[in-house]
Amino acid sequence: MADFTLTAEPFLGRFEQHYDDVKLREIYDVAFVSAAIPLRKLTAAKKAVSAAFGVDLPEVGMSALSQDSDMRILRLGNDQAFVIFPRAQHDTGAEPHVADLLGDVFYTTDQSDVWVTLEIAGTGARRALERICPLNIAPDAFGIGATARTSMEHLGTIIIRNGEDSFLLMSASSSAHSFLHAIETSIANTA
């Protein structure tokens, strides 16, 4: 019988570093679940999201916080949304949790371990991101809650503006070290 225990390890060992006007840290307790909208089920999907989160399904390129601010729902494509929320310490079922909330309208897939999540915050954040992010993330062009998928230093990245000068950056977990290196280099080069 099972007398072995498995311990989860954060992809970047709970990385956290403060620079002059930038803070960079790994958000390691992220639950991330994709929710695909079935063909011809957009109306039902919208209804399910309002019922589950108390907010409208965001437009493509935007995200919204649930009424209790616990969950953020991102719309990254016509038929693709994601739900991001803090993973409870011992919770191992992010996908069933979202599936329960949304009823069986969406096709849900656990993406928590596909991505590493970093938060870059501070007045120097945009200056650093300018070196790797091809998108226009000026405050007017990329409002709070805006989200997009792009590529930074050859790595696919989801960027979410989650505050005045704060961004969540998500990239593939297998290349987490390369991704961190790209961001650290950008901060060092613009310090």
Binding site: P38, R40, T109, V114
Partner: peptide, 13 residues
């Protein structure tokens, strides 16, 4: 016209 959805989980497992 097919109801089918794809997402990569290579890094997830």
């Amino acid at each position: 016209g097919l109801d089918v959805h794809l997402i990569s989980t290579t890094d997830g497992w």
